[in-house]
Every structure is written in C-alpha cells, then in structure tokens.
C-alpha cells in the first residue's frame, strides 16, 4: 500500500495503524521493517508491563508460557492508558478462558489476587487525621483494601511463590479468603477466616458500627491490625 505524497495526519495515522495491526504491509520494504520494529517495541513494552504486574503468575507458569499468554493478551487487549503500571486488569479473565490452562483451575484466582495487589499498591493513602469511631457511623475500609474469596487456597499459593518462600509440604484442601492491605510502606497479603467475609461486605456497604452483628464485630480487630481500615482513635 503506497502512501500519498502529502497525507493528512489522520489519513497517515489510519494507514500506519492498519499496518501496526498486521493488516496489510507498506509497499516500501524499509517502511515495512520500521513498522515491524514499532509493533515489536509496543508488544514488548506491553508484555513487560504484564510481567511486572503478575510476577506470581509468571513464576507459576514459567517464563515461556507466561510470555505466550502475555502476548496473546496484549494483542487482544492492548493498553489504552500510557500508565503501564496499571495495565493488565483483564489478564485473569484470559487465564480463566484459556483451554490449555484448564488443568490448573486455581491460576485465574491467583491472577485475580495479583491484580488486587497492583490496585492496592497504587491506591490513595489513608487520611492523615484518625477517624473518631461512633456507633452511628461506619468504619471505612482503607482505600488500598481488597479481598478475594476463592474456592482454592489462593493465599497459600501466593505466599509460596514469594521470593525466598519455602514451598509447603502440602497446600490446604479448602478455599481461602485472602486479604490485601497496605498497613505501612508495602502491600501485605494475608489470610482471613471465611467467617470474616460478611464483615468485609458490610464494611463495603458502609454499615454503621452499631448495626454490625456480634459475629461480624469479632473480626474487626484483625482487620484493624492488618491495616485494612482507615486509622481511628481507639482502634489499637
């Protein structure tokens, strides 16, 4: 496909975009090579961002399999935001839909947990002034707080893939409720009892403290200790 002598910017962009997507090739061989270099640069940047955001999934799959998965995702869902540190939200869905990975059904939840870690890493800091607790008001979750209730031992799997972690002799046979919080300088993943889920859901609905059931209130200290709630006077 030849270019016009003086193409309007929109026309040129349209032609170039077509080539970048692999639909058609410029007639000029040098231009074709340049398009291939730009396409490769773009793909490499997107897949590198996915590798940075999903280190546990990468460790679980191995470099080659992860790279193939990342390329598939980057081609189907290229980044729309130049902030590549926030690229890859949809990767867990691709993991869940990939037939070749069906034998490892926990991988999609492992990826979901990793994405929650990314979200927590870049979430807003808690307010500087501690909140005064009152029965008629909710105790807000910290902006970084996330959780994943999984039918798989997703917290144990995540912990086992951390640098320097010891591989457990066996993983729990039941599902786990993984909590993602940012108590101080870093993101922490921990495990909560499944019975804490109603409390998390109630806090997300901003249910006032005085309306929480006793069984729910019992889990508040653990959440406060994990930094999952905004700082409050008297929460220690």
């Amino acid at each position: 496909m030849p270019l016009e002598a003086r193409p309007a910017p929109a026309r040129f962009e349209g032609d170039f975009a077509t080539w970048l997507c692999g639909h058609g090739v410029p007639a000029d061989a040098a231009l074709a090579r340049a398009v291939a270099i730009h396409a490769n640069n773009a793909l490499a940047a997107a897949t590198a961002a996915l590798a940075g955001n999903y280190p546990v999934l990468r460790a679980a799959l191995g470099d080659a399999a992860f790279a193939a998965l990342a390329r598939r995702h980057a081609r189907a869902h290229p980044p729309a935001d130049p902030r590549l540190c926030l690229y890859g939200r949809g990767l867990p869905r691709l993991v869940a839909r990939t037939a070749e990975l069906a034998a490892w059904p926990w991988l999609a939840d492992l990826a979901r947990l990793e994405w929650l870690v990314v979200e927590a890493l870049f979430a807003a800091p808690p307010p500087r002034r501690p909140r005064r607790l009152h029965p008629d008001r909710p105790w807000p979750l910290a902006a970084a707080t996330r959780w994943l209730a999984s039918p798989f031992p997703v917290n144990s799997l995540w912990q086992a893939h951390q640098p320097g972690a010891r591989w457990p002799r066996r993983f729990p046979r039941q599902g786990e409720l993984a909590l993602v919080s940012r108590p101080a300088a870093g993101v922490v993943v921990s495990c909560l009892p499944a019975a804490a889920l109603p409390l998390l859901l109630a806090l997300r609905r901003r249910v006032p403290l005085g309306h929480l059931a006793a069984a729910e209130l019992a889990h508040l200290p653990a959440l406060a200790a994990a930094g999952a709630l905004v700082p409050a006077i008297g929460d220690g």
Binding site: L3, P9, F12, F16, H38, D81, P82
Partner: peptide, 13 residues
C-alpha cells in the same frame, strides 16, 4: 482504545 507504548513517526507536513 489503543495507546501504543512507542513513539510513532509521521510526515512533517
């Protein structure tokens, strides 16, 4: 919908 993470050329018209 696609932010290409590279710097694409154009005719300097």
């Amino acid at each position: 919908r696609w932010h290409v993470p590279d710097f694409l050329p154009f005719p300097r018209t």
